[in-house]
Simulated assay, not measured.
Amino acid sequence: MSVRMVGSRAKTVDYESGEGTGTASVLVVQTLPAFAVDGAADARPLSRAAQRLVTYLALRDRPVRRAEVAHALWADSSEEHGAASLRTTLWRIGRVHRDLVQATAERLSLSDTAAVDVQAASSLARSLASADAELPDDSEPVIGLLSTDLLPDWYDDWLFVFRERWRQLRLHALECLAGRLGEAGRFSEAIDAALTAVDAEPLRESAHRCLIRVHLLEGNRGEAVRAYRALAELLHTELGVRPSPGVRALLA
């Protein structure tokens, strides 16, 4: 699946092969769902500190001041210790992937030959919301990608905003994809996309609304009523509220 990267390192990357279309060798930094660096001849793993540094730069997608990086990654250390830890980590990254990080006296960034999977995935997710964009011939790998969390086993505070941004983006994309597939008569795929959104966030009414609408488009009113009742019971049990008027209106 080829998608267009966004940001200063724009290029087309194939998720299956990790190959770029440029002439330079592309290192793909993977964060969905686990960290990896693909495309390098040296397969030695990076240390945890190195992984965190590479991920921080990958998610920022712009040159970042050294002091900012050191403060974010070594927040519990003194300024001097954080700066020393940063220098050591950069040296260790360079021993494994010499061309992965660009460093100046003031700022750090990923190399121009490095691509980031979540940046490409975000570009794909945004494109699915456009009515003019073509639907994928095979939605299964797209839905699989949009079901994936960003580094769910990491608990760094600085990661929260990036994780939440990706979660919201992928949920919106799944809902848009479900609606467009349903309107195209691809009901099985549409239901899969809607159920994936519901599974990712069970209390998200817009995801349930997509599922109910797809059932109605297919002519399965009984399935739509069952999905509505499941939502109503869940909201009553968890939040003590009823489905919104917009959801109730679907079955009026």
Rank of each mutant, 00 (worst) to 15 (best):
104 T>W: 14
217 L>Y: 01
132 D>A: 07
38 D>G: 12
112 D>P: 15
141 P>R: 06
205 E>M: 01
58 A>E: 04
160 F>P: 01
139 S>I: 02
45 P>I: 08
194 A>Q: 01
22 G>F: 08
142 V>M: 07
243 P>E: 00
148 T>E: 13
178 A>W: 01
209 R>N: 00
120 A>L: 09
120 A>Y: 08
162 F>N: 07
71 H>G: 15
35 F>P: 15
193 A>L: 00
168 Q>E: 09
3 V>I: 06
45 P>A: 08
213 R>C: 00
137 D>M: 02
245 P>F: 01
82 G>R: 13
60 R>L: 07
77 S>R: 15
252 A>Y: 01
41 A>W: 01
160 F>A: 09
109 S>Q: 13
182 G>V: 00
70 A>M: 06
192 D>M: 01
193 A>T: 04
41 A>D: 10
131 A>C: 05
164 E>Q: 14
165 R>D: 15
2 S>Q: 14
207 A>K: 00
248 R>H: 04
18 G>C: 04
160 F>Y: 12
79 E>G: 15
4 R>Y: 12
199 D>V: 04
7 G>R: 04
171 L>D: 03
124 L>T: 06
25 S>L: 05
110 L>D: 09
1 M>Y: 08
137 D>W: 08
228 Y>C: 00
212 I>P: 03
79 E>W: 14
137 D>T: 11
16 E>Y: 11
117 D>N: 14
234 L>H: 12
88 T>M: 09
107 R>F: 13
38 D>R: 11
118 V>T: 15
19 E>I: 14
157 D>T: 11
102 Q>G: 12
130 S>V: 07
